[in-house]
C-alpha cells in the first residue's frame, strides 16, 4: 500500500482492443522521436568537426577554389537550418548527396553495401539464437539449485572465454586455422555460401556466449520460483515443467538480451568485415571515417543508429506479445 497505484488487473484483456493501440502508438512515437534525435546527432556530428570539414576531407593541399566549389555543391554555405532541412529531406527521399571521395551518390553506395551487411548480421544472429537459447536452458536445468558443479564450471568458463574474445581476434584465429593451415575455407571476400562460414562464426560466438549465460541465469532464477515448486508438487512430467511453466517466464529476459546481442552484432560487423574484406557497410564505414568522407558517414550513422532503434522497437513489441502484462505497465 505504500507503493503507487497498482495497475488494476481487470483492465487486462488480450486481443487488439484495450491497451494495445495506446501501447503501439506510444512505441512508434518514441521510435520516431528517437530517429529525429539520431538524424540531428548525425547532422550535428559533421558540424562539430573542428575546422572546415571539406578541407579536412580533401586534404591540406587541396586548391582553395576546389574547396570553395565543393562547399557550394554541398550547400555548406547556406544557413544552418536550411542545411538541416535539406539533410532530413534527403534521408526521407533517399537522396543524400555524393561521396566526397568517389563522387558516387551516397544512396547508391548504401544500396550496394547494406544487403551484404544485413545478410551477415542476420545469419550470425540466427545462429547465435538457435545455439544459445537451448544451450542456456539445458545448462540452467542441469545446474539448478547448485547441482552439478562440474557442468557449471565448464559452461561458465567456455561461454566466458567466448564472450570475452573479441570478434576480430576470433576472426583472425579462424582464418589462421581454417584458411591458412587447413585451407578449407576462403580467407576473405564475399563469394559463395562457404565465404559466410568464418565471418558468421566470428560474429556470432560472442553474442551467443553472452545470450547463453543470461538464459542460464534466468532459467535458474525461474526454476527457483514458487510457481515452479507448485508445478513440481503436482508431479508433472519434466517436459511440462520446463516447457510450459519455465520457458515462457524467461522469454522476456531472453528477448531483451537477444536485442542487445543483435545490436552488438551489428557493431561487430565493422571489425569482422574489415578482417574478412567483406563488401559491407562496416568495412566502408572505416574507410569513410578515416578519409573524413562525411556525407557517407552521416548516412551510415543513420543506418546503424536506425537499426539499433528498430531492434529496440521490435524487442519491445515482441515482449509485449509474449507477455501481455508489460503492455499494461507501459500504458
Amino acid at each position: 500500500m505504500t507503493a503507487g497505484p497498482a495497475p488494476r488487473g481487470d483492465r487486462i484483456r488480450s486481443g487488439l482492443r484495450g491497451p494495445w493501440p495506446v501501447f503501439l502508438g506510444r512505441q512508434l512515437g518514441r521510435f520516431a522521436a528517437s530517429m529525429v534525435v539520431l538524424a540531428t546527432a548525425a547532422f550535428g556530428m559533421v558540424h562539430a568537426i573542428p575546422g572546415d570539414p571539406v578541407r579536412n576531407a580533401l586534404g591540406l593541399n587541396a586548391q582553395p577554389a576546389v574547396v570553395a566549389a565543393t562547399r557550394r555543391t554541398l550547400g555548406l554555405d547556406d544557413p544552418l537550418w536550411t542545411q538541416y532541412a535539406r539533410f532530413l529531406r534527403g534521408l526521407v527521399t533517399w537522396d543524400m548527396g555524393d561521396s566526397l571521395i568517389s563522387h558516387v551518390p551516397v544512396a547508391q553506395v548504401m544500396t550496394r553495401l547494406i544487403p551484404a551487411t544485413v545478410g551477415l548480421a542476420a545469419a550470425a544472429f540466427v545462429l547465435a539464437v538457435v545455439v544459445a537459447i537451448p544451450l542456456g536452458l539445458l545448462a540452467g536445468i542441469a545446474t539448478r539449485d547448485g547441482r552439478s558443479r562440474g557442468t557449471h564450471v565448464a559452461f561458465t568458463s567456455v561461454t566466458g572465454v567466448f564472450s570475452v574474445v573479441p570478434d576480430f581476434v576470433l576472426g583472425v584465429g579462424l582464418v589462421f586455422v581454417f584458411s591458412v593451415t587447413f585451407k578449407v575455407l576462403p580467407v576473405a571476400g564475399q563469394s559463395g555460401p562457404e565465404s559466410y562460414v568464418l565471418p558468421v562464426i566470428a560474429l556470432a560466438a560472442g553474442p551467443a556466449a553472452l545470450l547463453a549465460r543470461v538464459v542460464r541465469v534466468e532459467a535458474q532464477r525461474v526454476l527457483a520460483e514458487d510457481y515452479l515448486r507448485t508445478a513440481r508438487s503436482k508431479r508433472l512430467p519434466a517436459r511440462l515443467v520446463y516447457l510450459r511453466h519455465a520457458l515462457p517466464n524467461l522469454l522476456t529476459a531472453a528477448l531483451t538480451i537477444s536485442g542487445l546481442a543483435l545490436s552488438s552484432l551489428l557493431a561487430g560487423t565493422v571489425l569482422v568485415e574489415s578482417v574478412f574484406a567483406w563488401p559491407g557497410v562496416g568495412n566502408q564505414l572505416v574507410r569513410s571515417v578515416l578519409s573524413k568522407d562525411f556525407p557517407v558517414v552521416e548516412a551510415m550513422a543513420v543506418f546503424f543508429g536506425g537499426s539499433v532503434l528498430l531492434i529496440n522497437l521490435a524487442v519491445d513489441v515482441l515482449i509485449a506479445v509474449v507477455d501481455p502484462r508489460s503492455v499494461i505497465k507501459e500504458t
Binding site: 548525425a42 556530428m45 559533421v46 562539430a48 568537426i49 573542428p50 542487445l260 545490436s263 552488438s264 551489428l266 557493431a267 561487430g268 565493422v270 571489425l271 564505414l285 572505416v286 571515417v289 573524413k292 562525411f294 558517414v297 550513422a301 546503424f304 543508429g305 539499433v308 532503434l309 529496440n312
Partner: peptide, 15 residues
C-alpha cells in the same frame, strides 16, 4: 546505452 560503444566511438572519431 542501447548503442554499442565501439560504434559510437567510430562516429565520435569524426570529431
Amino acid at each position: 546505452v542501447a548503442f554499442p560503444s565501439l560504434l559510437l566511438a567510430l562516429f565520435l572519431a569524426m570529431i
